[in-house]
C-alpha cells in the first residue's frame, strides 16, 4: 500500500459528494422539466382509429383461446376479410409517412424539444464539472483495471504513472451519468426521462412506422393464429376448487 496516493478529505467534501448530489438533483430536475414540456397535441382522428383497430386485433389475438372456435372465426373474419375487414387496406391508399412528417411541423418541434431537454442539461453539467473540478483525482475504484481504461477513467489527468484505478473528477461524472440510471428508475418511477436509449429506440420506431404496415402485420398474425379453446379444462378446475370450498 506504499504507492497509495493520499487524497485530501477536502476533495471528498467539496468534489466527490457535491458532484454526486448535483448529478442526482439534475436528473430529478430534468425529469420534471421534460414532464412540463411534454405537449399534448390533439392526434389525428384517422391515426387514432387505426391504432384502436390494431389494439382490438391484438386483444383478440391474446384472448383467442378463451372464446369458442365459432366466435373466434367470426371475429377473425370481421378483422381480416378481403373486402371490408377492418385490417384490410386497399392497395394504393396507404399514406406516405415521410411526407406526413414533413407536412406536420409539430412533430419535428416535439422531437427537437425532447432532444434539447436531454442535451442541454448534460452539456451544462459537463461544462460545470470541467470548469470547477478539472484535474482532481476524485475517487479510487476498488478493483484493478488494465491500462486500456486509462483514457476512460483518467480523463483530464495527464500522468501516466498514476495507478489506473484512480478516477478523475471528469470521469467520475461519466460514471455517475451511467450508474445513476438505476437509482432514477427507483426514485422517479417507471417512465423516467433518463432512459435515453430506450426512448430513442421507441421514437425511431414510432416515426418510421407506416400505419398501414402495422395493420398488415396484425392481419397476418391473426391469419396464422392457431385456435385452441381452453375453457373446457377450466370447468374441471372450477369444480375442483368449489369442491374444496365445500369441504
Amino acid at each position: 500500500m506504499a504507492e497509495d496516493l493520499v487524497l485530501d478529505t477536502a476533495i471528498r467534501d467539496w468534489v466527490l459528494v457535491p458532484l454526486s448530489i448535483v448529478m442526482v438533483l439534475i436528473g430529478v430536475l430534468r425529469y420534471f422539466v421534460s414532464k412540463l414540456m411534454r405537449s399534448h397535441k390533439a392526434p389525428d382522428q384517422k391515426i387514432v382509429k387505426e391504432g384502436q383497430v390494431v389494439i382490438r386485433a391484438r386483444n383478440l389475438k391474446a384472448a383467442a383461446n378463451f372464446i369458442p372456435a365459432k366466435s373466434f372465426k367470426s371475429r377473425k373474419t370481421y378483422f381480416t376479410n378481403e373486402e371490408n375487414g377492418l385490417l384490410h387496406i386497399p392497395p394504393g391508399q396507404a399514406p406516405n409517412p415521410q411526407a406526413q412528417m414533413f407536412s406536420d411541423p409539430n412533430m419535428a418541434t416535439d422531437m427537437m424539444k425532447k432532444n434539447l431537454s436531454m442535451i442541454i442539461p448534460q452539456t451544462l453539467t459537463f461544462a460545470w464539472v470541467n470548469f470547477f473540478f478539472s484535474g482532481f483525482v476524485a475517487a479510487k475504484i476498488p478493483f484493478p483495471l488494465t491500462q486500456r481504461f486509462r483514457s476512460m477513467l483518467q480523463n483530464g489527468i495527464d500522468l501516466s504513472t498514476v495507478d489506473v484505478s484512480y478516477v478523475s473528477s471528469r470521469s467520475w461524472y461519466f460514471l455517475n451519468l451511467f450508474g445513476l440510471r438505476g437509482l432514477f428508475s427507483l426514485i422517479l418511477g417507471e417512465e423516467n426521462a433518463t432512459d435515453d436509449t430506450q426512448r430513442m429506440m421507441q421514437m425511431g420506431g414510432g416515426f418510421g412506422m407506416d400505419s398501414s404496415k402495422s395493420l398488415g402485420a396484425e392481419k397476418d398474425s391473426l391469419d396464422i393464429i392457431q385456435h385452441d379453446w381452453v375453457l373446457p379444462k377450466f370447468e374441471q378446475r372450477a369444480e375442483a376448487v368449489l369442491r374444496k370450498l365445500m369441504k
Binding site: L16, K140, I141, L175, G179, L180, G182
Partner: peptide, 10 residues
C-alpha cells in the same frame, strides 16, 4: 452491475 459499481466506489 453499473449501479453496483457506482455505489461501491462511492
Amino acid at each position: 452491475l453499473m449501479s453496483f459499481v457506482l455505489f461501491w466506489t462511492f
